[in-house]
Every structure is written in structure tokens, then in C-alpha cells.
Amino acid sequence: MSLTKERKGFFGRLSERIGDALFMRQKIDEDMMDEIEEILITSDIGMDTTEKIMNELREYIKDNMITLPKNIKKGLTDIIIRLIDKGDRNKLSDKTPLVIMMIGINGGGKTTTIAKLGHKLKEEGKTVMFAAADTFRAAAGEQLAIWGDRIGVNTVMHQEGADPSAVIFDAIQSAKAKGIDVLICDTAGRLQTKKNLMTELEKMNKVVSREYPEADRETLLVLDATNGKNAISQAKEFNEVAELTGVVITKLDGTAKGGIAITIADEFDMPIKYLGVGEGMEDLEEFNAEEFAGGIFNE
């Protein structure tokens, strides 16, 4: 399928709008500050983070005695970088063996992200295996297995309705036996408010810790860029049961800004690792704070 892709992503589009807000104006006034605030809010950056950014921006303007709108761009860029740059933690672990758990709410893009990541790791020369531990959703295993076939990765799969922990158990044994570098586990989508499903996730994690203590771990929360404030509650609850190591923001090829990730990076000190920018296996980008923030005001 050929998607007419707009790969500008979050910062590209934010930048255009902030660029307009700044460059169309002659002086810094409350009107301009309101407009910047509006842009942040409509990008789904949470209310608290927006307030924080605005306060820091006001201080920056005062401390540096800035009078021209165009000169505040560096301040704004730096403030946002400070919120999202987590250094090396923005990168996926390079150690092997590695077990990656992909978790998140329904329909966010977990399975597709696994395909993209599997493809990427394979291209880097690693051996990869998938575990189809979503045994709940209709044809979830088939979906992952078809992706696996496309990119040349084996998928360990049980029947619909099987115990997801049992799939993980089997996949670990198989990965060990075959000396696989990276095992990526798909899990069923679940809303963070569903207690029993969250407990099920805990159980899967325990199986990994018990059966594969020598493996390094990544637990990635898949966040849909179209999501608004609810993503904060998602990050909080999933982190509590699964000790997240980072987030992947999907669907950034659409018109959603995904700004909620900035709030999550800030509030939970959570690194963003990848960005999903389409439905194909190549549509995954590594996150780089400087690069993105640097592009905020590309003129």
C-alpha cells in the first residue's frame, strides 16, 4: 500500500506553527504568549507541562532580556530538549540476549511496531524471534505470524485463548535453544484500568525473569500519538505493573501531534525510544532529542 506520507512528525509541524507565531510578530506580548500556549495545548502537551514550559519561557525571556519574538526560539527549543532528552536511555539496549515486551492499550500499534522493530534488528544483523502472547484478540497471532513471514522471523504461537504466559515460556525455551539475540513478545491490548489484565501482564513479566534471568530486558509502552491526556494514566499504570524502560509513539504520520509524550517524558522521566510513522515495516524512526528539537524552528 502506498501511503501519502507526511514524515514531518511532531516537531516539524509544531515548528511551523510556532515559527508563524513568532515571525509574524513584532514584539513579545501577552497575545504572543497566549498563542504559544495554545499551540502547546493543541499539540496534546498536558496542561501541567504546558504551564511549566510557559513559566520557563517567561524566565528565559526575562533573564536574557529578550525583546524580539524571533529570539525566543532557542529558549523554547532548549526547554523542550531538557524535557525529552534522556541521553543513552533514549536508545534500545544493545546487549544480547534481549527480551522486549511490547505493551499498551488496544489498537495502539504494538503488533505492527514489533514487525518494524524486528525488521530493523534483523537488518542490523541480529537474530530475532517473535512470541505471539496476544492469545485474546481475534486473529492476533495470525497477524504477527504474517509479519514474521514477511521479514523472515519465526513466531512462537499457541491457540486462541491459550495462556499468554505459556506462550512466553515456550518462546524463551526456543530462543535459548536457538541462541536467538532478541525475543520480542507481543501482548494483548489492555486498558490500564482493567485490573485482571494488568495482573496477567505482571505474570508474564515474572515468567521472563524466572526463565531467562540472564537476558537483558526492555519493556516498551506503545503510545498512540492520537491519544490525549489519558496517555498520562496509561504511562502511570503500566509503569506500576511492568517497570517500563521506554515508550514508542506510533501514528505520527497522521495529523496528531503526540505531544502527550513530552508530558510523559517529563512527569515519569520516561525515555522515548522510537517513533512510528506509517504502517509499513520501514516506518520506524529512532528518537533523537537534539535532532528533533533542533528542527523545531527550521526556517
Binding site: S43, D44, T226, K257
Partner: peptide, 15 residues
């Protein structure tokens, strides 16, 4: 429409 949608809901719905 997904109830979890944020500010983008208007763009999608309008489109």
C-alpha cells in the same frame, strides 16, 4: 472514534 483521542479528534472527524 477512539474515546482516548486528544486534540486530533476534530481533524480526523472533519476529514
Amino acid at each position: 472514534v477512539d474515546a482516548l483521542t486528544g486534540q486530533d479528534a476534530v481533524n480526523a472527524a472533519k476529514g
